[in-house]
Amino acid sequence: MSETLEIIESEFAQASIETFQMVLISMVAAAIAGTLIGLILHLTSNPLFFKNKIVNGIAGTIVNIIRSMPFIILIIVLIPFTRIIVGTSIGAVAASVSLSIASIAFFARLVEGAFSEVDKGVIEAAVATGASTSLIIRKVLFVEATPALIRALTVTFVSIIGYSAMAGAVGGGGIGNLAIMYGYNRYQTGVLLFTVIVLIIIVQLGQWIGDKIALAFTRK
């Protein structure tokens, strides 16, 4: 018992910082690049905007390739790319590169789905007013998709927490890694239990906040 507390005391703060770092970097990456790619996927599939089978096909295929790889494999495949970007392939920041790419692809599909759920008639009415595409994207598409986008971001957050446990494979650290290193490899069941509880609380809290915000933006 005392050993458990000792390990938690000495390792947990560092692990939390690492997890926080990884989650924050990949959430920001997903929110920006994922939204953009999701938007491109939608605009090129909707005849009311710029339907383009070639662009849509290319973007869709790239997203599918990334999403079809198990995350642990993606980390390994991306090692050379990670070296180019951050100079090293080890550590929380390095792990964030592959984590970001996986989250971008994941979130992009969810964003595309959120946009395609927007009532076609509303977009059509906006087109009929003579509005520019950029105005329609800003004032109609994003406004109508906001609750769905927030929910998508919440789902992505939960997935990133899950993926980040695998970051240990490249020395990324984090709470999940703590569980594997001590809880599993060194038979410290207390540590395992503690980290699991912490992860449950983080996920529950994230989901709860996400739902609350999404609800606040729902006007139906």
Binding site: D119, V122, E124, A125, V127, A128, T129, G130, E144, P147
Partner: peptide, 21 residues
């Protein structure tokens, strides 16, 4: 065409208002 559409209003069976605005 956008310019022409500014001169043509349109209403629909299901109103098509922006529900979030």
């Amino acid at each position: 065409l956008r310019k022409v559409r500014l001169n043509i209003g349109m209403i629909f069976q299901h109103f098509n208002l922006i529900s979030g605005s």
